[in-house]
Design a protein around this nucleic acid. Structure first.
Length: 658
DNA sequence: CTTTCAGACCTTTTT
DNA sequence: GGTCTGAAAG
């Protein structure tokens, strides 16, 4: 049922409200008329607010919300912004098209895929799916059994993806990033070609394909391009510094007829180059659109001046950036702390102590504090310490719920219902069954792919083997193919079938079962199985719900997060742990100038999350197995910083006499 | 052909 | 901690 609301027309007052709380530069961006606009928005400068108000402003000016396209880094970010715009002025703002480049590509391709030789019901491969497919080819071509060392499937997939994203040849990627594999360029090239053909044949697209195929569609079909350009007359792109070349090209193509393109970002916060992001996009925007208006947002509303003094110092050493200096009118505040601890565990103890202290003495809720780190595994020890002290926390980044084995198992069965050509999923699904290994699974997969019919596969299955497992799987496939069941019912049936298998496979199955129940609940929102599967890949659930009990919803949680996942967020108190040279920057990045620069920006992003308190900590004397070196110095990015900006402390361990 | 088990290996970051 | 690999047994 459609909900609606009748409102008196008061666009003048409404418009005043929209602009009321903006500073001069923000207002300039919000009220910008037609034509290209670049907004360089420093950390905490009200970037989101500016975008929200811009949407609200355009709608209040009579721009139909359907003709606005808002592209953000996550779909959640887009939804949140539109919700805020709607609350601020006009509920119609929620009708703006918002999402990620990938979800936008998905929507368009579901409509036009046949124009570029795909079926509209294509399946989307997530990262590990594409790894599996590459692995399959690697084996098929006999590269895995060779005596010479051949890169692993993850590495091969990575190389291929990089060459697509950065528009380089395989050879170039190898020369730049993997010189030791350069002599294998021809072989990897062969795999890349086969990978591309196979995906087309089997109606599969990986994350890169969504973008390249959309671009292809726009380039080769001027009518579609014009159509799209006409329907989205205003394009806004958030986090432009983290877009890659193809994404920028897509944006330019869609903006072709009207050039109403607004990009917002901060070159100093570009941290996704490993995914092909190129902060040149934001540097070069004025060259692509020489008439672009440029607005700088430099007033910071988040942090105290002592924190900004530190972050400004950190970023001032960056090699290339739009010159800007953040300032605040917020008075007072304490300088950040740099704390050295004897070892990792003392670092955890110190952090946990401070968290409790700030929570109890200053009444700061856990939810207004965060611990940030370079890589997910760096918080393991701290997690133990937090558990010991009953500090509730939620962790973001690192392991993905959707990539856990049990979830992938269930999804693989559902996927073959939608796309029998998906041989990777089919292979995985059949191998779940007792008595079916690689060989039989692949013959069953062939039958399924060639006949394209679940009935056929189900019949073959009962002939191949007559175990209970196989029988119930055969029945499951039949019931999924015949009855027109609601999506959650289908998920439920697969979970039911899977449960005994899971109980054999995993010791911690009760925990995993909860995840699957969660998946079932999630499915209730969907009308079609395919859209459910698509969403699950494009917007993965953040974390496993397993450790969360029902009553936990209102609990006050501390946040643990990788720096990457903390993008755009802020907290009263922030701890950055492992600010140790060799971990931040990582050992690996030290050889490459561009990578090192990105590590610096990473520290910058982390530090600018803090509003009031900022602690940087590092353990001394860490033995690094990979390089056989002892790491003991703080990050090189804070090395020469004067003590009045960053006072230093050392924690000494002592034996308690009790 | 399939299963199982022990040891090796490696751990950035994510749509 | 987790996945992957290889060898040996079923």
């Amino acid at each position: 049922m459609k909900k609606y609301e009748v409102r008196p027309e008061t666009s003048v007052t409404r418009q005043k409200d929209i602009l009321a709380e903006l500073n001069e530069s923000q207002r300039e961006a919000v009220t910008h008329g037609e034509g290209p606009l670049l907004v360089i928005a420093g950390a905490g400068s009200g970037k989101t607010k500016t975008l929200v108000c811009r949407v609200a402003y355009l709608v209040s000016q009579g721009v139909p919300p359907e003709s606005i396209l808002l592209l953000t880094f996550t779909r959640k970010a887009a939804e949140e912004m539109l919700r805020r715009a709607a609350a601020l002025s006009d509920p119609r703002c929620e009708r703006v098209t918002g999402g990620t480049f990938h979800s936008f590509a998905n929507t368009v391709l579901r409509k036009y895929a046949d124009l570029i030789g795909y079926d509209r019901s294509f399946t989307i491969l997530d990262r590990s799916d594409s790894h599996d497919l590459v692995g399959f080819i690697r084996e098929e071509m006999g590269f895995s059994s060779r005596t010479v060392r051949f890169p692993k499937k993850e590495t091969v997939a990575d190389i291929i993806s990089k060459s697509v994203n950065k528009n380089l040849t395989i050879e170039d990627v190898l020369t730049i990033d993997y010189p030791h594999f350069s002599y294998l360029a021809d072989d990897i090239e062969k795999i890349a070609v086969r990978y591309a053909t196979l995906k087309r044949e089997k109606n599969l697209m990986d994350y890169d394909d969504l973008l390249t195929n959309l671009k292809l569609l726009l380039v080769e079909h001027p009518d579609v391009r014009r159509n799209l350009s006409e329907s989205f007359r205003y394009i806004m792109i958030d986090e432009f510094q983290d877009t890659n070349r193809i994404q920028a090209e897509i944006a330019y193509l869609v903006a072709e007829t009207h050039r109403n393109i607004m990009v917002v970002g901060d070159d100093s916060q570009s941290i996704y180059s490993f995914r092909g992001a190129d902060f040149r996009n934001i540097m070069d925007f004025p060259r692509v659109y020489p008439d672009a208006k440029i607005v700088f947002l430099e007033e910071n509303y988040r942090s105290t001046q002592p924190i900004l003094d530190l972050t400004n110092t950190i970023i001032s050493q960056a090699a290339e950036k739009y010159p800007k200096k953040l300032y605040t009118r917020k008075g007072g505040g304490n300088p950040p702390w740099l704390v050295a601890t004897p070892d990792e565990h003392m670092q955890s103890v110190f952090v946990a102590d401070r968290i409790l202290e700030i929570h109890e003495d200053q009444g700061v809720p856990f939810s207004d504090m965060a611990v940030l780190f370079r890589a997910a595994y760096l918080s393991f020890d701290l997690e133990l310490e937090l558990a010991k002290r009953n500090i509730p926390y939620r962790k973001f980044g690192g392991f993905r719920f959707m990539e856990t084995a049990h979830v992938k198992d269930v999804l693989s069965v559902l996927r073959i219902v939608v796309n029998p050509q998906d041989e990777i999923s089919a292979g995985r699904a059949f191998r779940l069954l007792e008595g079916i290994g690689k060989r039989k699974a692949s013959s069953l997969t062939k039958i399924l792919a060639e006949s394209g019919s679940l009935e056929e596969a189900s019949r073959a299955l009962t002939e191949v083997k007559r175990s209970d497992d196989c029988k119930s799987f055969a029945e499951l496939l039949l019931s999924l193919s015949r009855a027109n069941l609601p999506v959650s019912e289908m998920v439920g049936r697969v979970v039911n079938f899977y449960r005994p298998i899971m109980e054999k496979k995993f010791d911690d199955y009760p925990k995993r079962l909860k995840d699957l129940e969660q998946l079932e609940i999630l499915a209730e929102r969907y009308r079609s199985l395919n859209s459910f599967l698509t969403d699950v890949v494009l917007e993965p659930i953040e974390s496993s719900v397993a450790d969360m009990t029902a009553t936990d919803r209102e609990t006050d949680y501390l946040t643990l997060s990788t720096i990457h996942s903390a993008k755009g967020l802020e907290w009263h108190t922030v701890f950055i742990i492992w600010v140790l040279d060799g971990k931040l920057p990582t050992m690996k990045s030290a050889e490459d100038f561009a990578q090192l620069e990105e590590e610096r920006r990473l520290l910058y992003v982390a530090a600018t999350r803090a509003k009031e308190n900022l602690f940087l900590t590092y353990p001394m004397n860490i033995y690094d197995r990979a390089t056989q070196m002892v790491l003991s110095k703080p990050s090189r990015f804070i090395e020469g910083i004067p003590r009045n900006i960053l006072p230093r402390y050392t924690v000494y361990e002592y034996q308690d006499s009790f």
